[in-house]
Design a protein around this nucleic acid. Structure first.
Lengths: 115, 115
DNA sequence: AATTTAGTTAAGTGTATGCTTAACTGTCTT
DNA sequence: AAGACAGTTAAGCATACACTTAACTAAATT
């Protein structure tokens, strides 16, 4: 079974590499073949393949082979799962922070009462 | 120099571990000491320290020591930098996808014209 | 049929990561 | 002053990661 936590592990892990983020950025503008994805990268093709496996293993992309060319495309679902995790944390923090600001305001109001 | 790409490397790398995400989730609800962060984790204190170093090194948290207790708190800036990267990719994809949907709609309209 | 193209597999290497235990440094409590 | 508490440092170990080269498969071209 692939629980939510290990899905996020894989997704963030996949995102933690500039070559892979480059591939995702490329794929955001449309499907691409393995060679096209490899073109801007200064590494061997097997290395590219390994990055693609990481991306596909995390569910960030999917790919299919037709003849001898494999076409990759972005899979936006996992992208937004990761995004949502970050949004949730940040918004929880912001709520707390707003409350703190309120509290500071209250203190200032009381100070003013004392004048 | 710490460029944007390697900042994202570190941030996503830090996010790719359930223990560290747990710590961030805890810190989203307010500051905490090292021991408090360690409490729910089934690992030694030095291991916890190493995770905290990863988090602080990525800029996701900051911490300060007072007496013998170190207090950690969330640093929301890097969180939203990572979030923004994901949002940008997803929204670019969505724009393209919407255009494709439009295109499909157009095709269907033409089909209907032929009926 | 021979060659080029597109991708794949296998094996090896160096570095990074995630953990451990043991020993240690300050700070607070009694 | 003695001990407990909160955290830290150092060293070691096993696994995972990012790459490489060499050898290979299968599809398209000439």
């Amino acid at each position: 079974m692939l629980n939510e936590s290990s899905r996020l592990d894989r997704a963030f892990q996949a995102l933690a590499d500039p070559a892979r983020r480059g591939m995702l950025a490329r794929l955001a503008s449309g499907p691409a073949t393995v060679s096209e994805l490899a073109l801007p990268l200064a590494m061997s093709l097997p290395a590219v393949l390994q990055h693609l496996q990481a991306l596909e293993g995390s569910g960030l992309i999917r790919s299919e082979k037709k003849g001898r060319v494999r076409t990759c495309r972005l899979n936006p679902g996992v992208l937004s799962t990761a995004e949502q995790w970050l949004v949730d944390r940040r918004s929880e923090w912001e709520v707390r922070h707003d409350r703190f600001e309120e509290y500071v305001m209250e203190l200032k109001d009381k100070e003013n009462d004392d004048d």
